[in-house]
Design a binder for these strands. Structure first.
Lengths: 203, 203, 203, 203
DNA sequence: TATGAATGAGGCTTCATTCAT
DNA sequence: CATGAATGAAGCCTCATTCAT
């Protein structure tokens, strides 16, 4: 029997649910958001939800994978045109410091950090997270080591450590912004952190 | 007429519950851990729990105040003997980099970070958090400005921003350590971050 | 797209729950009857209950509105055919004195009286009650004043007071019947009260 | 061994608890008032409570008996000086219509009516209630029949029925007053009811 | 006797998931 | 495939009563 509906139709529904789920998890958090919230937001029925995802946890994980992947894609693309390692690094700082710190963007990050915490308690997830983390990590290491090769940066420095600190700052600042909200000078802080890192990297 | 049990007895029970609660929140998270988990862990009855705390939220908040208070106390004491601002800062870095990154200590931080996220969605809690945060923030600002006065550090630098970045690194590193666990070179990373900040502060 | 069950189906379930609730409240009282009692009586699940009513209080209020509404409807219909005010009043007395004082009917009144008491302690409910009471009150006042206009009744008498006393007798007799049960000559008492009131109204 | 404390001491404590219980039941109702409420109100301990009463139900019943007894005592005393049956009846009406309808007095009645309802569901209590009711009932019947003997009142009238109606009015009016509160013209209503009854009794 | 901490059954409500239509 | 009513386990909290001190 031929399928009753096209694959595109199904994929669209799936994406609708993912979007709604993201919106709900962002607003209320994983534990607090309910399946009802999600299906109400999406205008679909509960039955439909379970046709596409087998559980609340599954949609959550799907979301996680997708969202990490997407944000990494953006990052990589943005860098391509830059020549020197220093320029690339600066551009990464720029990207983060120029994110629109709208409610939606902040909530996205909240979900990511929450993911991180939940994953840290779940052996099945923790490897996923490590893998995701590694992607970002390697991306930065690559740039730094490129700079070291080209003698832009000091060779005495452990690239992995600087990368780690960079991502720590990123997550740490977002975490703090969640509480401080509007008054938080994210852009300035990010630029300061960028200067700090560059100063450290330079010979 | 006098109470039948001593104040010490009651305080001990209270602390027992706090300890159990911390263990459960650390293991399962605030939302997932149940009152039943806590009382089972403590060997007490549910009724007893409610003699000491009026709700799950209350014990959670108590825990946080206590843990924030304790860790700040340690920090302040540790600094006292140091003369220069630079030494003080270095010592702060040392303290954090020498924390015993045992399971327990890590879980403590997990609870703190988790709370941060929960609080960020709850207007009643957010002020608590800001207050706690300010304590640590002001502490660092004080040291940095002392260093600026004494001409140890550059006067062109916004002390509040450096403080913010320092705490962002702290929380960010802990967040990452939650996932990376044993392999995470927390000590080295912290020291690197310390050097980075000092280099930036110095003229 | 259309709902999978008909509106009639849902309305039937709702009415089933209302009936069960009435039975349980009547048997045990509002405070003592539990949601479990109600769902067990109705053969439904607890979850189903909460699909139809949002709380125990809500089903209770719904029940009361409904029962007040129904009994008032009956009253008003019964009166229509009568010509004179005196005949109307007599008919009201007749209706009450000929109620089937079965267990069920008595229990209905018990719930009403109980609710009266609960409402009297609850500012949110008290207005509901006043509104209900006013409906009955105005109904009687209208008849009495019609009788006064037509010179069937003395014009020196405050219609509102007689109405109040009539309803006081009604509730008072029901209250006593709750305890005296079978031996209580409700019919005769009601007729006596009717005579008493008519004698007082007549010039 | 001689008792450690005097009987008077114990009786005083008992009465204190009864007073507190009455206050709490009046304010919150039987089901809603807790043992904690009562002991807090009385300044005693829970243990003490259970030394004097074996359960919440017991103190409730004790209260009931006592309060019925006391109010009847007052009634009987008040009547003594009157000569004719009509005067006696009028005086009874006067007493009720001149009660201070303060909050406290109203709440007392609320508790009584609540008793009545609870008792009506409890076979063990229902006989108690009937006995109490009979005391009041017989009291009024006695007066009415005295009036019939002395030819003050019509002999065609069933004294028991008039008595029943009188008490129904009393309870009914109190019930309504609970909801209407301040605006309720209890005094005028009671006097109107008195006139109504007397008119009916007179030849 | 007095104290009040401890108990634990039981109440209300939520919500992920199932399944008949 | 879609619908949404039904399920029932599980969570939080209350409170009458007990009992060690």
């Amino acid at each position: 029997m031929a399928p009753k509906v096209s694959e595109e139709y199904k994929e669209k529904k799936r994406q609708d649910l993912l979007k709604s789920a993201m919106a709900c998890f962002a607003e209320k958090g994983y534990q607090t958001a309910t399946i009802d919230d999600i299906v109400t937001h999406s205008g679909m029925s509960k039955g439909a939800f379970y046709n596409y995802f087998s559980s609340k946890e599954e949609i959550y994980l799907t979301l996680l994978k997708q969202s990490v992947y997407l944000s990494f894609q953006k990052l990589r693309e943005a860098i391509q045109s830059k020549e020197t390692a220093k320029e690339k690094l600066k551009h990464v700082f720029d990207i983060y410091s120029n994110l629109d710190f709208t409610k939606k963007s902040i909530q996205n990050h909240r979900v990511q950090i929450e993911f991180w915490i939940i994953a840290s308690r779940n052996d099945n997830l923790i490897d996923h997270m490590k893998t995701h983390a590694k992607v970002f990590h390697d991306f930065l290491i690559e740039i730094i080591e490129e700079g070291q090769k080209k003698s832009e940066f000091s060779k005495d420095i452990k690239s992995a450590d600087v990368s780690e600190i960079f991502w720590a700052i990123t997550d740490g600042l977002f975490l703090h912004m969640l509480v401080e909200k509007d008054e938080f000078p994210m852009k300035r802080l990010y630029q300061t952190a960028g200067k700090m890192i560059l100063k450290y990297l330079e010979k």
